[in-house]
Write a protein that binds this DNA or RNA. Structure first.
Length: 306
DNA sequence: CTTACGGCCTGGGTGC
DNA sequence: TGCACCCAGGCCGTAA
């Protein structure tokens, strides 16, 4: 599932082929995950890609209708008058392909480019999102998200954490507080910092917050270096798998030994998400409402209204 | 106001 | 072999 390192990997891949290209046409299959499907066909063709950036877990394709002159050094994002934002959800893939190549199942978007290739969007579950944001509206869009997890300063991170009464895991996953983190890297960062996921953010000591900040940045940087984690079927813009999953210390390791102390890794639900941790290295907060352990066998669930 | 939680979307994998 | 169900991330409505 694409989180910050996976999205960064895709963005870097797209930078190899998209900047300078111009969209020619748009073809969509299922489009129920797109805010305004018609707008894509209406506004993308004719526009040129200035740059590809990452905004949290969004891929941001910066576009201009005034080609050529604006494109020498494309760092000038202010020249973009339109931003094509893509969120990969859980199973989204974005890649530049030749039209001659076979089309992967569940490919719902074909964005024809002026060099004869096409940008393809594939998404099995369609939990992804696509939207267009004008240059004017981009600051407001960014303002709804917190600081980027990769670049947030130690000081800003500490201020945010200390002001939160929610559990630290919930804080890490809250895109309005911190953008880019997801379940895998939240668990990995907490294990490295030796902090239990259910601890209340405001109760963390300064040393713990500093450890978490450092752990988070180390984990993210290492994952980017390895092209992200391919635990389900993440593929980068060239269709290659990442390899950070072999470095996971807790994620999806329930019952396996902690790499630090050998204690079996446990899994509980925190903030509505599976949370993996070492009960020895990451001590539970005292005297909170006990969290139910997840039973090994399936739990009974019934639908409402029955 | 902030936080917590259940439900919803979808379909591949799993376990019976 | 079939099939019910679990689960994932983000978002939204509702409740405290």
């Amino acid at each position: 599932m694409p989180e910050l390192p996976e999205v960064e990997t895709v963005v870097r891949g797209l930078r190899a082929s998209l900047p300078g290209r111009r969209f020619v046409s748009v073809r969509l299959g299922k489009s129920d995950f797109i805010d305004d499907p018609a707008a894509l066909g209406e506004h993308l063709p004719g526009r040129q890609v200035l740059a590809v950036e990452r905004i949290g877990k969004f891929i941001c394709v910066q576009l201009t209708r005034h080609g050529g002159q604006a494109l020498q050094r494309s760092q000038d994002a202010s020249a973009a008058d339109l931003h094509f934002l893509i969120h990969l959800g859980m199973t989204g893939r974005l890649a530049v392909r030749s039209p001659a190549e076979p089309v992967a199942p569940h490919t719902h978007g074909f964005f024809e480019l002026d060099d004869g290739n096409e940008l393809r969007y594939t998404d099995i579950r369609r939990f992804g999102r696509m939207l267009l944001v004008t240059g004017d509206a981009l600051p407001a869009f960014q303002a709804r998200l917190g600081a980027d997890a990769l670049f947030v300063s130690a000081r800003q991170f500490a201020e945010q954490v200390q002001g939160r009464r929610a559990r630290i895991k919930a804080f890490l996953l809250d895109q309005k507080a911190l953008r880019g983190m997801g379940n895998i890297y939240a668990d990995e960062s907490l294990w490295r910092a030796r902090i239990h996921p259910a601890r209340l953010a405001a109760n963390l000591g300064a040393d713990e917050i500093a450890r978490l900040h450092q752990a988070m940045r180390q984990v993210l940087r290492a994952a980017i270096k390895l092209g992200g984690s391919s635990i389900s079927d993440f593929l980068d813009a060239e269709g290659k798998r990442g390899s950070y999953q072999v470095r996971h210390r807790v994620y999806d390791r329930e019952g396996e030994k902690c790499f630090r102390c050998g204690t079996p890794i446990e899994r509980i639900i925190v903030a509505g998400r599976s949370s993996h941790f070492c009960p020895n290295c990451q001590r539970a907060p005292r005297a909170r409402k006990p969290r139910k352990r997840i039973a090994a066998r399936k739990s009974v669930r019934r639908r409402s209204g029955s």
